[in-house]
Design a protein around this nucleic acid. Sequence first.
DNA 1: GCTATCCGTTGATCTCGGTCAAGAACGACG
DNA 2: CGTCGTTCTTGACCGAGATCAACGGATAGC
Lengths: 225, 225
Amino acid sequence: MPVEPNIEQLRRAAFLADSAPAELTAMLPFTEARQAHAGEVLLRQGEPAAHVFVLLDGAIKLVRTNGRPREKVVDALLPVATFGETAMLTRHGCPFTAVALEDSSLLAIRAEPLLELMRGRPVLLWRLLEHLSQREAHLLEQLERFGYYNAAQKLAAYLLDHYDRDHPVEPLLGLPPRRTDIASLLSITPETLSREIGKFKRRGWIAVRKGRISIRRPERLNALL
Amino acid sequence: MPVEPNIEQLRRAAFLADSAPAELTAMLPFTEARQAHAGEVLLRQGEPAAHVFVLLDGAIKLVRTNGRPREKVVDALLPVATFGETAMLTRHGCPFTAVALEDSSLLAIRAEPLLELMRGRPVLLWRLLEHLSQREAHLLEQLERFGYYNAAQKLAAYLLDHYDRDHPVEPLLGLPPRRTDIASLLSITPETLSREIGKFKRRGWIAVRKGRISIRRPERLNALL
DNA sequence: GCTATCCGTTGATCTCGGTCAAGAACGACG
DNA sequence: CGTCGTTCTTGACCGAGATCAACGGATAGC
């Protein structure tokens, strides 16, 4: 049974981080804790988003489904990330499909009353605008990198991006069990990914235990970029 | 001497398109017409943006300058596009450098009073939020495409994106005189771009006159994607 | 009009990463 | 514990596109 959400959990979301307690409390009535099992679809591309999600624990991938079998992962989210903010703002539907990579726990904020609440609290709008601005910057950076990075650089950038700063000593990556998802995100084949991981491992820059990767020499990875 | 801007020009900007005349009129005092000559830098990556720009005529490229000689074009803008909206919202400075590709005419709206105006008119905030949401969708699409498109597909997508719908009979592209910019945008080398253009020309799908490309068989280009 | 410079084009070669195929590790299930 | 099915790994080969280099054509400046 999911525990009732509280404002401390809401506060972990970047676009709500420094909101007044009163505003967060006002959201609780239409915020619910939600568990998603691995593989569960939370948002579907093209459909309107009824909720904004806050990922508290687990991992989520955002994929573009373009009809054809080729399905591209455009982002891999770790706690605490949010998604669905833009989907509720456009009538074109969600620009991606969100799938749980592993069993995850999230907050689901109903979009309609959230929008209504924001209508009366412009400060919330400002926060969201700033948040979307940062996301644009992030996407531009991704776009830039994919332009000229080779396979090793893509992997290094991915590993560094997901470096767990909370556990510097044993930085285990809690990410995609599925190597194919990482490969898709980096726009390389699983075979190439496997070879690059092998190279890094052989040089002692990373270690692999139970399929999970830990970074041993972040400075070496960074030197590649 | 630049003509005084009017609200009809402002209305051409997507995020202002259906604003009330009163709101647009309120912007006029801090909006000025600006001419930019080819090569002129309008915004610089990392620096705060003092203006939001509306491109009325000409062409602008957005480039990421990452220190190294490698400089990547992330977008090529045609009229009527806007840029700098996100730069004024984040304290991290502009996420790109904006350079005029040819002599261009723009509107420059001073950021500070614009933000102040928006503070009092939340409807303007909503429009901007919707606009940024659409841009995120656009960037995600770009990111997806770059994942698995080959050189020919990239070129076809670029040509179709910049197809001038106002001149269906003679759809001359008014874009980058510089082939190297197109190549950078598509993340291919100028040599490869040249070869692909050659192929399309040989098949009669496009025609080149004075360095400018016109599309003859858009349906063929579309079939590649 | 002549020359210099910069781009764009064309050709030859190389290389990174994709493709195809086989084998190894892992988890689920009976 | 063994079998199956899926995913990851490893190897051999191939091809799209990068690189290197030479040539052609446009624009600017004298």
